[in-house]
Structures are given as structure tokens and as C-alpha cells.
Amino acid sequence: MLSYCTNVHPAEDLDGIIGQLDTYATPVRESLAVDVLGVGLWLAADVAAGLAADAAARARLAGELKARGLAVQTLNAFPYGGFHDEVVKHAVYVPDWTDPRRARYTRDCLTVLADLLHSDAAYGSISTLPLGWREPWGPAADDRAVAAFDEVTAYARTLSGRIGRPLRLAVEPEPGCVLDTAADAVAWLAGRVDAEHVGLCLDTCHLAVSFADPTATVRRIHDAGLDVVKVQASAALHVDRPLEAEARAALAEFVEPRYLHQVRELAPTGEVLAADDLDRALEELPGRGPWRVHFHVPLHAQPRPPLVSTTDVLTEAVAAVAAGQRGGMPHVEVETYTWTVLPTWRGSDLATGIADELRWARTEVTV
């Protein structure tokens, strides 16, 4: 079942979440002419805690989803809260996996998912941040993170036994974080976690930014005994010649104050050079090789030249997962949360845009 991620919507209370289902998710389902639409819910920490503590509230939300023909098989538990604040940037990585609040939030999300999980879902998944931002981090932080994962995994195992279906964490590598690449995530997770309940979330925008080979990356994950638990179907910006004036002008339109837009440059030597945000990249990176920018762009619409999107990485990665994954396809969730900061999107209808993305994904992505 293909889903779209509701972190594109700002609501952080139960009534607001239900309201945005009416405003966006139901019109998307109707536009697609499907009986059931997958929604990957994002629940901020406060609403997740409230739902986890209140079985009646969980039952209400489950009923509201069913009444609208909406199905949940996955949650996004990466942003803790304030994901639509005026400035988010590095705050999206707080609290990290050394902070007890992160484990508590993830447990709350597991509690909620256990009661919302659609009857057709073989398992439930929760994507989470790749430990935290890379600084500060060290061996003591690693130890605390391992202990937190052990605690949350034990809780997932208990809930899984109760509902008769697995609940699984999906660690999402992201440029600039402790687990910057999928290779970093594999190296950290393999041998440290229970692979039945912890695997990877393969965000294909992040994968593209790292300049990693999609097929080789998926093979590395499987060879380590890990699963791709979830794919976040997303695309980055790519530009071949970032020093050219036309390219720099086009890139400058994507500089904005809310989200972090990490940039990687593939140098002629094969080295991957890094900048932590697009404005810094325009000032600091040499620009002698192609750039990829962590800016989730709509899957169905190419940016204006000379920029292109990395949907080729998305389709190759999903095909590689489909060819090699044990136990069938993982959850696939379209995650374009940047609509309101896109330079080419000025008040266009969001439900129409989401529906157009999902139409593209239904045609181009194997699910």
C-alpha cells in the first residue's frame, strides 16, 4: 500500500489532525478514485503522548481514519515537534537518541500504531532519526543510544506479541547526522540491534544526496542481515555545473529559512564534499563537480533547468529492494514536506499536488 506522509501538514493536536484529514487526505483519496488511501501519520510528541495515555482517544482516531477510507501502516517519528515553525533547521534532530524523551516519544508512537494498524498491513513501521546530529557525539553517546534502542525494541517486541504482527523501527540516515549515509547506518546497526524489530528507512532523497549507488546500497543492507523496513519516496535537486550563473541563480531560489538543505558535491577525484546548508554551499563549495541538494521536490514535476530531480535514484532503489528483500516489499511513503517553501509553489492547491505525486508514484514505483 502506497502512503503519503502527513508531516507536510502543520497540525499538532488531535482535533487539528482530524481536520487536516478532511482538508487534504480525503480529497486526495477522492481525486485518486481509490477506496482506501494510505497515510503515514506524523504525530508530534505531545499528541502522541496524549493518545498513548488514552485508549478512548486512540479508538476515536482509528474510527475517524476508517470513516474517511484512510489506512495507517507507518508513522513518521523523526520530527519531535514544531516541524512547521518559522525556523526548524537543526532543531529537527532534537531530542536525539541519547535523550530519554526520544525513547519515550518512540514508545508512545508504538502504542498508538498498535491500535491504528490497518488490517491489511503485514507489519507496522516507525521511521526515526539517525541517532542525532553529528556534533557532539562520541562513545558515551553511542552507549546511551544503544541502551535506548534496546529499551524501545523490547517494548516493540511486547506490543508485537499482543497484536500478532511485528512493529518495527526504521532508522533513517540523513546527511550531516551521526549516521550520514546508509553505509553508516548499516555499520552501526548490524550486530547492535534486533533485526526483527529494527532496520532501515531508505529515504531516496537522502540516498541521492550521498551520491551512493542505489543497487549497491540495498545489497549492502541485505548482506548485513538487515531489512529496508520503509522507503520514503522522495527526490533531491541535482545540478551538473553549479558554477554556471544560470545554475547558481536557480539554486539561490531554493535558499529558505525553515529547513536545513544539506549539499554534497562529487569532486573530480571521487571525493564527496559537504556543506551543511544551501546558502553555505553557494559560498564555500568549489563547484567543480555536480551537486545534490537535500530539498525534497515533488516527484511528478521537474524543477526548471538546469536543475533536475533525482527520481532515477528513487526508481532504481525501489527496484533493487523489490528484487532482493526477504519477505516482500517494505512500506513505501511519499514524503514531500517542503511544498510551502518551494519557490515554484505559491498557494497552489496542496491536495491536488499530493494526488499528482501519488499518481506518478503509482505508475513509476513498484509497490
Rank of each mutant, 00 (worst) to 15 (best):
Leu2Ser: 06
Asp13Thr: 06
Asp13Cys: 07
Tyr24Gly: 01
Val28Cys: 06
Glu30Cys: 03
Leu32Tyr: 03
Gly50Asn: 11
Ala52Gly: 07
Glu64Ser: 13
Leu65Val: 03
Ala67Asn: 12
Pro79Gln: 10
Lys89Ala: 09
His90Val: 14
Trp97Ala: 03
Arg104Ala: 15
Tyr105Arg: 04
Arg107Phe: 07
Ala114Glu: 00
Ile126Val: 14
Thr128His: 00
Pro130Cys: 13
Glu135Gly: 00
Gly138Arg: 05
Gly138His: 02
Ala145Lys: 03
Val146Gly: 00
Phe149Asp: 00
Val152Thr: 11
Val152Ile: 13
Thr153His: 04
Leu159His: 02
Arg162Tyr: 02
Arg165Ala: 12
Leu179Ser: 07
Ala187Cys: 05
Val193Pro: 01
Asp194Glu: 04
Glu196Met: 01
Gly199Leu: 10
Leu202Trp: 03
Gln232Arg: 09
Asp240Trp: 02
Asp240Met: 08
Arg241Ser: 08
Pro242Ser: 11
Glu256Asp: 06
Tyr259Asp: 08
Thr269Met: 08
Thr269Ser: 15
Ala274Leu: 12
Leu282Gln: 06
Leu282Asn: 09
Glu283Ile: 08
Glu284Gly: 10
Gly289His: 02
Pro290Asn: 10
Trp291Met: 05
Val293Ile: 14
His294Lys: 14
Phe295Lys: 04
Val313Thr: 15
Ala317Ser: 13
Val321Ser: 06
Ala322Ile: 05
Gly327Asn: 05
Pro330Asp: 07
Glu333Ala: 15
Val334Ser: 08
Glu335Gly: 05
Thr340Met: 12
Thr344Arg: 13
Ser348Ala: 15
Ser348Pro: 09
Asp349Gly: 03
Ala351Leu: 07
Ala361Gln: 06
